[in-house]
């Protein structure tokens, strides 16, 4: 569980996130939505300690983030960043590297690490390509490899920054199934999503942001009823079999 209490933060003097109080619960998928530049990715960076808040506190599993070491945070929170470098390593190496917070010196992988990486690759559906170089994989396969890396980190809190970008529909569905599986396993899953329909469909809680501020964080139906989506995006929502959006004048 991650709690933000009156958190303000950003880069230098620029405050990309302003006075946000929000709790991400275990066993839930929380979708962070909002227009480009509204502070969603900055909020994730504040959640895992990559940015320190200018004001307010972040707590993970009841402990203040600033009281934990980098390693302790990495054992509790995993992050899949939006943009990633593609190193010249195999899928298996990538999954193993995410065991770093659990390794003692001299950083040699033990049986537990190998087992965690193997299980993560299976869950992400990338075991068959484990000996392939990341540079030789398609975008969808590469995303699976990064998901394996995320899972092998064995944390209770999982942050995903726009994980569906560049994925075709089949890979998107696989990803949704995986997020649901993690939620059912009691993990706290927080994901930034640009696909508003997907966010309203799959999330237990939707947090809508605009201009660095949190407009609302509630169950999808309540979010729709609150009018926050219209306020943030300038669109109206209608629901048939799926959500539909039309630009508001």
């Amino acid at each position: 569980m991650i709690e933000l209490k009156n958190v303000t933060g950003g880069y230098g003097h620029f405050e990309a996130v302003r006075d946000v109080s929000l709790t991400f619960l275990n066993g839930q998928i929380t979708a962070l939505v909002g227009p480009n530049g509204c502070g969603k990715s900055t909020l994730l960076s504040l959640c895992n300690g990559q940015l320190s808040p200018h004001q307010g506190n972040v707590l993970v599993d009841g402990q203040r983030l600033d009281a934990l070491s980098r390693t302790q945070i990495a054992r509790k929170i995993a992050l899949l960043p939006q943009s990633r470098t593609v190193p010249d390593i195999t899928v298996e190496s990538l999954a193993l590297h995410s065991r770093f917070p659990w390794l003692g010196y001299p950083r040699v992988y033990q049986n537990d690490d190998n087992a965690a990486a193997h299980k993560a690759m299976q869950r992400a559906g990338i075991t068959e390509s484990r000996h392939k170089l990341l540079t030789h994989l398609s975008g969808g396969q590469r995303q699976k490899a990064y998901l394996a890396m995320l899972l092998a980190q064995s944390t209770d809190n999982i942050l995903l920054d726009e994980p569906t970008t560049y994925l075709d529909i089949a890979h998107q569905l696989t990803l949704i199934a995986l997020m649901t599986e993690l939620k059912q396993a009691g993990k706290c899953v927080v994901t930034v999503l640009h696909d508003l329909g997907m966010a309203l469909d799959i999330a237990d809680c939707v947090a809508v942001m605009k201009d660095g501020r949190l407009l609302v964080a509630k169950a999808p139906n309540e979010v729709i009823a609150s009018g926050a989506v219209e306020a943030a995006f300038g669109v109206t929502i209608t629901r048939g079999e799926r959500y539909a959006f039309t630009k508001t004048d």
Partner: peptide, 23 residues
């Protein structure tokens, strides 16, 4: 050779390395 584990993580890019607990 001793710090190869840290180098592995650094090679994943700054954001990923930081999220894995590397300074």
């Amino acid at each position: 050779l001793t710090l190869a584990g840290e180098l592995d993580v650094l090679g994943l890019g700054e954001t990923t390395a930081a999220s894995l607990g590397l300074h």
